[in-house]
Every structure is written in structure tokens, then in C-alpha cells.
């Protein structure tokens, strides 16, 4: 893997001039209008308020939409519209709501074993144990149903589920916003640890700049389907951003996220 990456000069993830248009009621809505960015071995966050198109970008990458235009590529390989198995192994996604993203009638074991079975990966039991340990859950949790877990535990399962296929890129769709503040910090720390240990590339979508500051190097600010600002994380903590929209976001989130970031740093 390492050799391939060094040989290949193309960025790990490439998004060029991405357009997505939805039909909503009778009218057409341009959700994403010409978004472009590259992603290497770094952490990019896309921020923006709801409706800015940030989640849509993520879902295009995860293969959930097939009516986009533009170019998506991983390691220089162009992505098709349809999700295929190979792509599943390269890109995985963690969702916002750990309550909704786990099948309520599947045990943790079933949920974790299924992707392995689909992709014909053996050693299922061992892998489940190892991934549970990695996300900080006791291996006995494999027999539990989602409703027998706390929110944080569920999100850990969701992350385990995403990582069990050993993807290079992890798409994180507001991974902490549905959780209690104290738990948010735990998950953020887990994600930070995992990134380091597993050598993952994160693409994070959030409306919460506090999370960005904690987890990412760079921030793309989206508004009405466009990236309006692209800046380093350090520049939003403390400094005053140039773009008025970015400034507004920073102002809005500063108050709220301060305590959480503090909690995370304390943890």
C-alpha cells in the first residue's frame, strides 16, 4: 500500500467540478454546484450550515447518488456512478445518527460480519474481536443489539463497522452531532487515535467548527453548493477569517463548541 502511494503522484481523493441537482417537488434544486478539492494524507473538513450541500458531496463519494456530474477519483482512478464492491473497500462512511444507521434487528456481530461476508473476507470472528478492541469496546458486545448500547457505544460500533473493511478513506457525516457533549469528546478522541494508528484519511462533514479544530488540518467552507473558503484549521482558532460567511460560522460556533473542545482536550 505504501509503495503504491509513493509511486502514485495523484492525490488520494480527487473531486473536480462536482455538480448535483435534485428534483424537489416540481422544481430543480442545485445542491452542489462545481465543488473541487483534493485530499492527500490529511484531514479535510467541510463545514457549512444545513442545506449547503456538504452532506451531498459526501454521499456522492459514498456512492449513494448516481446523478452527479463532474469527476471523482481515488488514487487517480475515476469513480463510476454506481457503487461497486471495490469502492466499498476503499471508502467507508460513518453516519450522524448511530441510532438510525444500525439495523435494529441485527446484533453487533451480524452488522460487523455482513460486510466481511459480502466481500469474501475470512477470519470473521477474529476480525470482529480485533475491531471491537480497536474502537474500545469489550468483545462481549458482539452479541448485543443496538438498543442495548449507549449512544457512544453505538457510534463506536458504527465506526467499527466502517473500519472492518479496512478502507483508506473514511467519510464522517457529522459523527458526533447526535451525541451528548461528553460522549462527543470520546468519539473525537477515538477518531483521532484511529487516524494515527491506521493511517486513515478523513473527510469530515460538520456544521461544528469546534469539531473541525479538534480533528482536521484544513477546512472547506460550503455555502449554497459551492466552496466559498478553503483555509487551515489554525486560522479559524483565534484568527478572524476573511470570508464573511466563514466569519459568521466561526462566531456562531465559538460559543457553543468552546466547552466541548475543552472537554476533549482534557480527556
Amino acid at each position: 500500500m505504501m509503495t503504491q502511494e509513493t509511486m502514485n503522484t495523484a492525490p488520494l481523493l480527487e473531486v473536480q467540478d462536482l455538480h448535483v441537482r435534485f428534483q424537489s417537488g416540481g422544481s430543480l434544486v442545485d445542491a452542489v454546484r462545481g465543488v473541487s478539492f483534493d485530499l492527500g494524507r490529511e484531514k479535510l473538513a467541510i463545514v457549512g450550515e444545513s442545506g449547503s450541500g456538504k452532506t451531498t458531496v459526501l454521499r456522492c463519494l459514498a456512492g449513494q447518488y448516481n446523478h452527479w456530474h463532474g469527476r471523482l477519483a481515488i488514487n487517480g482512478e475515476k469513480l463510476g456512478r454506481k457503487l461497486d464492491k471495490a469502492r466499498c473497500r476503499k471508502v467507508q462512511m460513518v453516519f450522524q445518527d448511530p441510532y438510525g444507521s444500525l439495523h435494529s434487528r441485527h446484533t453487533v456481530e451480524t452488522a460487523l460480519a455482513e460486510p466481511l461476508r459480502i466481500h469474501g473476507i475470512g477470519n470473521i470472528s477474529q476480525r470482529i474481536d480485533s475491531i471491537l478492541t480497536k474502537v474500545g469496546l469489550p468483545t462481549s458486545f458482539r452479541y448485543r443489539y443496538p438498543h442495548q448500547l449507549s449512544g457512544g457505544q453505538r457510534q463506536r460500533v458504527a465506526i467499527a463497522r466502517a473500519l472492518i473493511l479496512e478502507p483508506r478513506i473514511l467519510l464522517l457525516d457529522e459523527p458526533t452531532s447526535a451525541l451528548d457533549v461528553s460522549v462527543q469528546a470520546e468519539i473525537l478522541n477515538l477518531l483521532a487515535d484511529l487516524r494515527q494508528k491506521e493511517g486513515l484519511t478523513y473527510l469530515l462533514v460538520t456544521h461544528d467548527l469546534g469539531v473541525v479544530a479538534h480533528l482536521c488540518d484544513r477546512v472547506a467552507v460550503m455555502q449554497q453548493g459551492r466552496i466559498v473558503d478553503l483555509l487551515d484549521c489554525s486560522s479559524i482558532v483565534g484568527a478572524v477569517p476573511e470570508h464573511p460567511y466563514t466569519r459568521m460560522l466561526v462566531e456562531a460556533s465559538r460559543h457553543y463548541s468552546r466547552e466541548m473542545v475543552d472537554a476533549a482536550q482534557a480527556a
Binding site: 466499498c88 467507508q92 444507521s101 439495523h103 455482513e114 459480502i118 466481500h119 463497522r161
Partner: peptide
Amino acid sequence: QEYIITARVKGLSEREVIWRH
């Protein structure tokens, strides 16, 4: 619901997503 997307991201075929999940 998101678990459906989860299922798709896992690589399940659409038929499996609909009937099994």
C-alpha cells in the same frame, strides 16, 4: 433511514438491501 445507506455502503446488492434489511 441511514441503516439502509449503511447497508449499501457495506456493498450489499440492492435486492439484499431491500429484502434482508
